[in-house]
Design a protein around this nucleic acid. Sequence first.
DNA 1: AGAGATACCTGGGAGC
DNA 2: TGCTCCCAGGTATCTC
Length: 274
Amino acid sequence: MPELPEVETVAHALNKAIQGKLLRTANSYSRLRKPFECKRIVRELAGKQCITVWRRGKYIIMEFDCDFVLIAHLGMTGAFHIENARQKPDRHDRAALIFADGNALRFKDARRFGFISLAKIPHRGAMPKELDSLGLEPLEPEFTAKAMQERANGRTVPVKTFIMDQKVVAGVGNIYASEALFLAGVHPARRSGTITGNEWKKLVPAIKKVLRQAIKAGGSTIRNYQTVDGSEGGFQQRLRVYGKKGEGCERCAGTITVARMAGRSTFFCPECQK
DNA sequence: AGAGATACCTGGGAGC
DNA sequence: TGCTCCCAGGTATCTC
């Protein structure tokens, strides 16, 4: 389940892998959440050089030396891998970018929740308008307790759901939302508008800390996630509540409990998260 | 407009 | 061993 740390790890690896390469063509093997527009992609990007690859929220942006970018989302099970273009795609490969040097960047996605789409930008280095609605970037200075308290004012959704709202904060998903709330000692079901300034001063740094630690560990491998070279992330060993229903809390005598919030499993300690 | 539910999709694990 | 059932969840879209 790729969240910000996994996407960061993948974007970094992709940047190393394809920066400077010339796109030759593209292939589509089956449909994704949004159609992979092979013909349009080839028309706009063939012969163009990949300039850089970066991340915004959970989206990966591949820049080329023109006014188009590719926006990729890994969905639940998306992964990129590089191999020789002559190699046969395997069962779950959905699309490929073929480079002039003979390498293929294949997008593998068993559940097809991911996508790669072409977007026009006003000028090189600009943010595609498709990503305008994304909220605060949690590792940037703009992500502060004050900004979050303002946005939460009057809101009644559980704070867990609130911090997973991509229009509020971009990049926090189900795993790290549970982990950050645990670190901050905040109960996930609390209505977001009732979180005090002091609580946001614990929760905002907790989100940053959890994300930074996970990036350092190369992400968490929960079920599906793989890095570009096929290796697994190391953060799952450091998870404190996610997936730990029935286990003892590491901080108090409580037992980790699971509840559903907005249809998602939410793990927390009912004793020390208030 | 905000909140919650549902659809999309398929591998994998649980239970029998 | 092999079958069925259900869960995992990011996002778009719907209903209230």
